[in-house]
Design a protein around this nucleic acid. Structure first.
Lengths: 109, 109
DNA sequence: CGTGTAAGGAATTCTGACACG
DNA sequence: CGTGTAAGGAATTCTGACACG
């Protein structure tokens, strides 16, 4: 169920016009941020861009940063360090689970 | 967070062409099921239909029922009784919580 | 009843480019 | 660097209707 909800957030089904309404950004801005590698919409068969809710949230973060005068290059760097942090956290969680499993295993034998 | 995830499922942002791809139904079928009150897409300013992930799931259920030869009128009835059941369940949960709260309150004084 | 289709119009989306700076 | 805009073409969506049955 949670997994299912997760997929709603990641599934790329929203067209650029709707994304524009949701974020308040212009089509030009949305396409430009893609050019700068800040977002990665899917393309359907005819080449139309499709975005996820996660993309919409990223775009809103970008809009805030841009209002503060942060350049797209900086925003990209920030996003990458954040990603790394999240991966590290995920690995930490995994290690912890493995540790618990090992502890269990030791108790059993 | 859960509430947020919920809204992804209910938010009407998907256009009919994408819904068609997701469900395997034709545009004609999707519009017809709306005519029969089985689904209720939003309309944006220019009259374009927008669907939620919840609508997509409903459509997939409809598709299954239709394959079994169930008529749209019957499907509508089934959906309504299911809705009522869910409301009843929600009320039951609420009652239970209220009961627990009252019990707490009695213990406190 | 449920679905296909042709019809005509309006709105969407795409790309590459010029503009300003 | 970031964004606006005009340009032309291709694909989307809408409605009302006829068709079959």
């Amino acid at each position: 169920m949670v997994q299912q909800d997760r997929s709603y957030k990641e599934k790329k089904v929203i067209s650029i016009g709707t994304v524009s309404e949701l974020t308040g950004l212009t089509l030009r801005q949305i396409r430009y941020y893609e050019e700068r590698k800040l977002i990665h919409p899917h393309r359907n068969e005819r080449g139309t861009r499709k975005y996820s809710f996660a993309d919409v949230e990223t775009l809103m973060d970008i809009a805030n940063k841009r209002e503060e005068g942060v350049q797209t290059t900086e925003i990209l760097k920030e996003m990458r360090t954040k990603e790394k942090k999240q991966i590290t956290e995920a690995q930490a969680r995994k290690k912890m689970l493995e540790g618990q499993l090992n502890a269990q295993f030791r108790h059993r034998r």
